[in-house]
Design a protein around this nucleic acid. Structure first.
Lengths: 127, 127
DNA sequence: CGGTATCCCCATTGATACTG
DNA sequence: CAGTATCAATGGGGATACCG
């Protein structure tokens, strides 16, 4: 049994899922990657996530120390998000997961269009 | 954009999360590991999951081709679950996630008790 | 034992409006 | 622009009962 932040977990996997198992968390971490993105950029990259949800999940990731939040005190406001070292340390694993998903699709449906992990992300980064 | 099973996904990560992002799916895959477990054993290993949820998540994992379900036609019934090759191919990544979680805890709370991934699982396997 | 089938609640999420 | 605040709705998930 693991005790952490007033909760108990049966195993490390359960704890890990508490940190990144939220509905959109892995996806947010993945799209942040090595980049620094403004809130609106993140919102555009994740159109299926509502503003409310995005804010909420970002706050939790921030509490967990996986995401940095930098506020420019100006009007109109500007807020930038990036991964902390702890967050970045997760990226290799997320890459593996992504590749696993690609292999899965290719084996189930070999007819499908070729997919590429990095290409996915580049679709959203250029202005 | 990736099309798969009548749904469209923005990237491979989104697809992967569809497969294993369910509330308990990663945990189920993790506890199955290389083992073959009966429904009741799985239920005991995951006390926080209700029978309904466990059944439901297992069905979805089965549909996705990650879990085998073998039914002994006898009374009382006996059903055994195990990972398919596709499911097992995920285990190294789950192990990495687990280890990442341990490192995270140790860095945030160095005072904590030593944790071990494998030890976690052994707690539930003996009788 | 390993499930369905029902009922039902409340937590998560969405939609909308407002603000520094 | 990047949020909060509020209210409303939906469906995820719990509890219970029953079945092959």
């Amino acid at each position: 049994m693991i005790y952490f932040k007033n909760s108990e977990y049966q195993c490390s996997m359960e704890l890990t899922l508490e940190l990144i198992g939220g509905k959109w968390k892995s996806l947010i971490l993945w799209y942040l990657g090595e980049n620094t993105l403004r809130f609106s950029e993140l919102k555009k990259a994740l159109p299926k996530v509502t503003q409310k949800m995005l804010t909420q999940q970002l706050r939790e990731l921030e509490q967990s120390g996986l995401v940095n939040r930098y506020i420019y005190t100006q009007i109109p406001p500007k807020v930038e998000y990036s991964l902390t070292p702890a967050g970045k340390s997760l990226l290799p694993i997320l890459t593996s997961l992504c590749e696993w998903g690609q292999n899965y699709v290719n084996e189930i449906e070999p007819s499908g269009q070729p997919t590429a992990c990095q290409a996915d992300k580049q679709l959203v980064s250029p202005k």
